[in-house]
């Protein structure tokens, strides 16, 4: 892989005696869709949490756009251009759909608490810009008709869409999607696949954790297979499907 945006170098994470990620090295190509697959408990979500700063690595390095980001807090990581979604959807259920996305514009606006309290005229303009950007995002995801509904009232499929819209609102260079299709029906899964391909066309690199193999093989440019925190194979979807180690890991030979 020539042009990588994210590099994991000998990344390791121990939880007490359990090794969740074991000296893993992996490069994620810019502008592509890369999928992380592997059995449950293989360490995929742990890798996401390491990359986004929710966990600190026990050893090894994480480089994003040439910069070591190991010790950064999640909000700093977001500010340098890594967005993410969560395995168990984490929308803000009591806020409206559009407000959820407006929260995503946080990094692209800068009113502090003092100005927010007194609301000077220039702030109204900023507020308007935030709202317009959020509306644009809603149209992109066909959620505009739900704009003012409480986010918690949406069906799961739309909640996952909303979570992605919110993560896109920060204008990330790299987007980490943690099982975006889990719990979705067949039609919703197809829509999700189309959405992820659209995101790629927006020149956002996508790193995907997903169990729906059909979806993974369909949309991924590269697939990395992980088992027991170790990389056991990587390559194009076709290469992976023919890899004997992968078949063994999945079928438990």
């Amino acid at each position: 892989m020539s042009n990588s945006i994210l590099e994991l170098e000998m990344l390791r994470k121990n939880f007490g005696g359990v090794v969740a990620v074991s000296d893993l090295s992996l490069q994620i190509e810019q502008g592509a869709i890369t999928s992380l697959i592997g059995p449950n408990g293989a360490g995929k979500t742990t890798i996401f949490n390491l990359v986004t700063g929710f966990l600190a690595p026990s050893s090894g390095h994480i480089k994003f756009a040439g910069r070591i980001v190991n010790k950064m807090k999640p909000h700093t990581i977001a500010s340098i251009g890594i967005g993410r979604t969560f395995q168990n959807v984490q929308i803000f259920p009591k806020m409206s759909v559009i407000e959820n996305i407006m929260v995503g514009r946080h990094l692209r606006s800068n009113a502090g608490i003092f100005y927010s309290c007194v609301l000077p005229p220039f702030l109204r303009k900023e507020e308007k810009r935030i709202q317009e950007a959020a509306e644009e995002q809603l149209h992109f995801l066909n959620l505009a008709q739900h704009a003012h509904a409480p986010a918690g009232s949406l069906p799961l499929g739309n909640q996952r869409m909303l979570e992605i819209a919110r993560a896109l609102a920060i204008e990330p260079k790299l987007l980490l999607l943690d099982e975006p299709a889990s719990g979705l029906n067949a039609r919703e899964t197809i829509a999700m696949g189309e959405l992820i391909e659209k995101i790629k066309q927006m020149n956002v690199t996508v790193l995907l954790v997903e169990h729906d193999m059909e979806l993974v093989m369909d949309i991924s440019d590269y697939v990395a297979v992980i088992n027991f925190g170790k990389l056991i194979a990587e390559g194009t979807p076709v290469e992976i499907q023919e890899n004997e180690d992968v078949i063994a890991a999945y079928l438990g030979e």
Partner: peptide, 28 residues
């Protein structure tokens, strides 16, 4: 004013889910 501002939304977000809020760049 505060509640309906960028900062207010940030606060409500923190109350909703701290993880999600920080993944959007909010310094909790």
């Amino acid at each position: 004013n505060l509640i309906n501002s960028r900062v207010g939304r940030g606060l409500q977000a923190i109350h909703g889910s701290e993880d999600a809020a920080s993944s959007l760049g909010i310094n909790i």
